[in-house]
Design a protein around this nucleic acid. Structure first.
Length: 616
DNA sequence: GTAGGGTTAG
C-alpha cells in the first residue's frame, strides 16, 4: 500500500526540525464547532500580523492548542505569511505534520508552499510540486509560475524541459505569466538553455515588458550584453514601454560593455518617461557609471539618493576602488558605518580592494581584522585574495607568500596568479617561474597560466623557453583569448582586435597609428618588445605591438572625436606594459584624458601619468 | 495568492 500523502509530505519536510523543537504536531481536536470557528478567525488574524520566527512560533502554539492543526485555511495562511527562511521551515514542518489530514490539502496550499520554497531558493519546491501531482491535486494557473521559478533557481535544463512538458500537458502553455517565467527559467539553465528560452520567446503571440525583460535578462546573465542591447532596441521598435526592471537590465549590459552614452541615455529616459526610480534602479545607475569610467556621476547620484541600501554603498565604494580612489572609498565606508549601516562581506570586498588598488597597506590590514573581530564575518577566499593583492602591490612579495601559507583556506588559482604577476612586476622571476609551473600542474588547460609563464620568460630573455610554451599550447589545442577593445562613439559600439582591418576607415586609422608612433618616439617612448604576446609572429615585434587593439581604438578615437575631449575604451584583457607606456605618452602629446578599463581596473591617463601608479 | 531586476578579490 502507498503511504498517505501526509506521511510522504512529512518525509519531505523531515529536514524541518522546528516542529519537534516547539513540541507541536497535533491538537486536542475536542473544541466545539463554534469555538473552533472563533479560534480559527483569531488565529488567522494573528497570523496576518506576523512573519518572523518568534511570532510564528507563538502562533503555532496557539493553533495547536485550539486543535486547528489540520485546517487547510490556517495551514495555508501559516505558510503564506512565512517570509524568511526559518519561517518557511517552520511552516512546512507544521503544514506537513504526519497527523495532518491530507484530504484537506488543495492546490492553494501547495502553491503557497512551492512559492515559499522557490522564493527562498530551496530545492524542496520541486518535491512539494511532485507530491502535489502524486496526491492527485491538479495544478492551477498560479502553480507553474512558482514551479518554474523554482526550476530557474536550480538551473537544470533537463528538469526544466520535463516541467515544460507538464505545462503543456495541463494546458497552461498559453498563459502569459507561465510563458514569461518559462523564458526566465530556460535562460537560467546552462548548456544552451538560452536557445530554448528564445524559442519560447519567439513563439509568444503577446509580449509584454516582463517577457522582454526576461529574455534580455537571459542575455545579460550569459554576458552577451551586445545581444541584450540589440533585443532592447527591438523592444522599442515593437512599441513596448520598458519599465524600471528593463532599465536595470539594460544598465547592467551598459556596465558590462562600458557603454556610457547609452547608459546616460537610460538615465535621461527614466526622467523623461517617469520610470519608477527605485533603489535598485539607482544602484544599477551607480554601477553603470562606475564601470563606464564616470565615477563622479556615480557619486553625484549616490549623494542624491534619499534611501540607500547596503548595495548602494557597496557599489559606489567598489566603483571608487577600481578607479584607484582608495582614500575616498575608505572615508565613504566609515561614513556608512557612522550612518548605522552594517557592512556585509561584499562591502568588505569592495573596501579591501580599494585599499589594495591605492596601496593602503596598513588600512587594509586594519579593516580585515575589524571585519572578523567586530563584525564576525568569516573571510572568504575573495577577502584573502584582496589581502594578498594588497601585499603584492606594495612589493611585499615575501610577506604575501607567508600570508598565503598561513591562510586557513586553500589558495585558489586567482591567488596564485596574483602572486605570479607580482613576481613578474617586481623582478622575482625565478620564484614566479616556480609558482607558475606548479599552477600549470594543477590547471593544465588554463591558457592564461601559459601566458604568464611566457611573459616571465620574456622578461628573463629566455627566448627558447618562451617559444617552447607556444608549442606546448599548440599540442594541447589551446588558443590564447584574443585581446579586443571596445569603444563607443555616437551611440555605436566598435570593436577592435589586434591588426584589425575590418573597419571602413581602416586606412586612416593605420595612418593615424603611424603618426602616433612617430610622435611618441620623438617624445622618448621606447617600445617594450619583451611583452609581445604569444600568438603574434615574432619577426616584427615592434610592428605587432603597434597594432594592439587598444592602440587601434585610440587612433580611431583621435580621428573621430573633437580635440580636448576624453577618450574611453574598454579592453577585455589586462592592458600590456607597452600599451600602458605608449598611452601615457599619447595622453600628453595629444592633450587628451584617456580612460582605459581593463579586466581588473581603470587607468586614467592624463599629462603622461596613469592613475594606477604603474602597478596593475 | 502568479512572471522579469541591483553590489562580489585578480
Amino acid at each position: 500500500m502507498q503511504p498517505s500523502p501526509a506521511i510522504k509530505a512529512s518525509k519531505l519536510a523531515r529536514r524541518f526540525t522546528y516542529l519537534s523543537t516547539y513540541g507541536g504536531g497535533g491538537g486536542g481536536g475536542t473544541t466545539p464547532v463554534a469555538n473552533r470557528r472563533a479560534a480559527e478567525q483569531s488565529c488567522l488574524a494573528s497570523l496576518g500580523l506576523c512573519d518572523a520566527v518568534p511570532k510564528l512560533v507563538q502562533a503555532h502554539a496557539r493553533i495547536i492548542k485550539c486543535g486547528l492543526g489540520s485546517n487547510p485555511l490556517v495551514l495555508t495562511k501559516f505558510a503564506s505569511v512565512s517570509s524568511d527562511l526559518d519561517a518557511v521551515d517552520l511552516a512546512c514542518s507544521f503544514v506537513f505534520a504526519p497527523d495532518a489530514d491530507a484530504r484537506l490539502y488543495d492546490a492553494f496550499l501547495f502553491n503557497t508552499v512551492v512559492r515559499a520554497c522557490a522564493q527562498s531558493k530551496r530545492r524542496e519546491a520541486l518535491g512539494f510540486y511532485r507530491l502535489m501531482l502524486r496526491s492527485g491535486i491538479s495544478p492551477n494557473k498560479f502553480t507553474y509560475p512558482f514551479v518554474l521559478k523554482a526550476c530557474a533557481g536550480i538551473g537544470d535544463l533537463r528538469l526544466g524541459r520535463a516541467v515544460h512538458c507538464s505545462v503543456v500537458k495541463f494546458g497552461f502553455d498559453e498563459d502569459v505569466h507561465v510563458q514569461n517565467t518559462m523564458v526566465h527559467m530556460y535562460s537560467c539553465c546552462g548548456g544552451g538553455g538560452i536557445e530554448f528560452a528564445r524559442k519560447v520567446f519567439d513563439g509568444m503571440t503577446k509580449l509584454d515588458s516582463v517577457s522582454w525583460s526576461a529574455m534580455i535578462g537571459g542575455y545579460v546573465r550569459l554576458g552577451e550584453s551586445g545581444d541584450a542591447i540589440a533585443l532592447f532596441r527591438k523592444m522599442q521598435i515593437a512599441g513596448v514601454k520598458p519599465d524600471e526592471i528593463t532599465m536595470v537590465l539594460v544598465l547592467s549590459a551598459c556596465a558590462d560593455l562600458g557603454a556610457l552614452e547609452l547608459g546616460r541615455w537610460v538615465e535621461s529616459y527614466v526622467v523623461r518617461e517617469n520610470v519608477r526610480k527605485t533603489v535598485e534602479l539607482c544602484n544599477a545607475l551607480i554601477d553603470m557609471f562606475a564601470k563606464c569610467g564616470d565615477v563622479d556621476s556615480a557619486l553625484r547620484l549616490f549623494r542624491s539618493m534619499s534611501n540607500k541600501t547596503i548595495v548602494s554603498w557597496t557599489s559606489v565604494i567598489g566603483g571608487l576602488a577600481v578607479h584607484g580612489r582608495g582614500m575616498e572609498a575608505v572615508s565613504l565606508f566609515d561614513e556608512m558605518m557612522a550612518a548605522g549601516v552594517v557592512p556585509d562581506d561584499v562591502a568588505f570586498i569592495g573596501l579591501l580592494s580599494a585599499c589594495s588598488h591605492s596601496g593602503l597597506v596598513e588600512k587594509g590590514r586594519d579593516y580585515f581584522s575589524l571585519m572578523t573581530k567586530r563584525f564576525g564575518i568569516k573571510p572568504k577566499i575573495e577577502h584573502y585574495g584582496c589581502l594578498v593583492d594588497l601585499l603584492c602591490r606594495a612589493g611585499l612579495i615575501q610577506k604575501a607568500i607567508e600570508f598565503v601559507e598561513k591562510m586557513p583556506l586553500e589558495p585558489n588559482p586567482v591567488i596564485w596568479r596574483t602572486l605570479i604577476n607580482a613576481c613578474r612586476a617586481h623582478g622575482e622571476l625565478k620564484l614566479g617561474e616556480d609558482i607558475t609551473k606548479r599552477l600549470i600542474g594543477k590547471e593544465p588547460m588554463h591558457e592564461s597560466n601559459y601566458v604568464l609563464l611566457s611573459n616571465i620568460y620574456a622578461k628573463m630573455s629566455h627566448w627558447e623557453k618562451k617559444t617552447k610554451i607556444r608549442e606546448v599550447m599548440d599540442t594541447k589545442g589551446m588558443r590564447k583569448i584574443p585581446g579586443s577593445t571596445l569603444i563607443e562613439l555616437e551611440n555605436e559600439i566598435y570593436e577592435f582586435v589586434a591588426g584589425d582591418k575590418s573597419h571602413d576607415q581602416y586606412k586612416e586609422i593605420y595612418e593615424m597609428l603611424d603618426e602616433m608612433g612617430r610622435e611618441i618616439k620623438k617624445a622618448g617612448y621606447l617600445p617594450s618588445t619583451s611583452e609581445v604576446l604569444l600568438d603574434i609572429n615574432e619577426e616584427d615585434k615592434e610592428d605587432a605591438l603597434n597594432r594592439h587593439s587598444e592602440k587601434l581604438a585610440i587612433a580611431f578615437a583621435l580621428l573621430r572625436t573633437p580635440p580636448g575631449t576624453s577618450i574611453r575604451i574598454v579592453k577585455n584583457l589586462r592592458v600590456c606594459e607597452d600599451c600602458h607606456s605608449a598611452t601615457k605618452f599619447i595622453s600628453r602629446i595629444y592633450d587628451r584624458e584617456i580612460v582605459v578599463r581593463d579586466r581588473n581596473r581603470f587607468h586614467h591617463f592624463k599629462d603622461g601619468i596613469c592613475s594606477c601608479g604603474d602597478f596593475w
